[in-house]
Every structure is written in structure tokens, then in C-alpha cells.
């Protein structure tokens, strides 16, 4: 499985990368929505995009609407990971086509649990 991590902070990309590596994802990084679209146009179709909201050039919300408007990327799961926590903004992101939403700060468990909800991670059940 492959995750595209879209955040303008290298620190945040590194935090997310470590978490999804743990559960077997390969990763590609992009520093804003435009860079992420370029990566997709170049032919990468990740299973999952982790998307910040506030970024220069193209924000995460715009990225989600652009991706949702394109047939080629229907299969991708989109999860916002952002400090944006207003009720109305979460509703907007979901309406635009984001599948899940995580508000910063988060723990590694929270990301893994959300991916379980999305069927992208399976926790080992103790025998």
C-alpha cells in the first residue's frame, strides 16, 4: 500500500511517515496541494492521501475537490490531517469528498485507528 503525505511542514510529514511505515505503507511526500496533483498527474495512484488544510499555493480543501472531480482517482482514500477544527469546516471537507478527518494534535494510535475504520489497516488481534 502506498500513501501520499501532503503537508507543508517537513516535521509533520516525517511524523506521519513514521506512523504509516510502521503498518507497512510506502510513502511519497508533497509540500502542498499543487505538488501533490503533479505527483498524481505523473502517474502515481496511492491508496491513501493524508492531507493538511493550510498550505501555500494550493490548500488541502482545493486538492480534495480537484481529486474528487477526476475519474482516474476514484479509488483513492482521502484523509484530512489538519489543525482546522471548526465544526463547519469538517462538514465542508466531508461534503467535498474527504473520507476521514483527523485534527492535530494526534497520537500514532489515532492515525492507525482511523485507517482501520477505512479498512486500510488491520490490527493484529491477540490469539
Amino acid at each position: 500500500m502506498h500513501a501520499l503525505i501532503i503537508d507543508d511542514s517537513r516535521t509533520m510529514r516525517s511524523i506521519l511517515k513514521r506512523i504509516v511505515h510502521e503498518i507497512g505503507f510506502e510513502t511519497t511526500e508533497a509540500a502542498n496541494g499543487q505538488e501533490a496533483l503533479d505527483v498524481l498527474e505523473a502517474g502515481l495512484v496511492p491508496d491513501l492521501c493524508l492531507i493538511d488544510w493550510n498550505m501555500p499555493l494550493m490548500d488541502g480543501y482545493t486538492f480534495v475537490t480537484r481529486v474528487r472531480a477526476d475519474e482516474r482517482w476514484r479509488s483513492m482514500t482521502l484523509m484530512m490531517v489538519t489543525t482546522e477544527s471548526e465544526h463547519g469546516q469538517i462538514v465542508r471537507a466531508l461534503a467535498a469528498g474527504a473520507h476521514e478527518y483527523v485534527i492535530k494534535p494526534f497520537t500514532a494510535d489515532a492515525i492507525v485507528e482511523k485507517l482501520e475504520l477505512l479498512g486500510l489497516a488491520v490490527r493484529e488481534v491477540p490469539a
Partner: peptide, 18 residues
């Protein structure tokens, strides 16, 4: 916020919480 992130689907967050 940290507790909400633990396993709460976003659709239910906006439906059941203020």
C-alpha cells in the same frame, strides 16, 4: 481533541458532537 481522534469516524463526530 486527542480523545475524539481515537476511533471516532468524522461523519459521527459532526453528527453527534458540538
Amino acid at each position: 481533541q486527542v480523545e475524539m481522534n481515537r476511533g471516532m469516524p468524522a461523519t459521527r463526530l459532526v453528527k453527534y458532537f458540538q
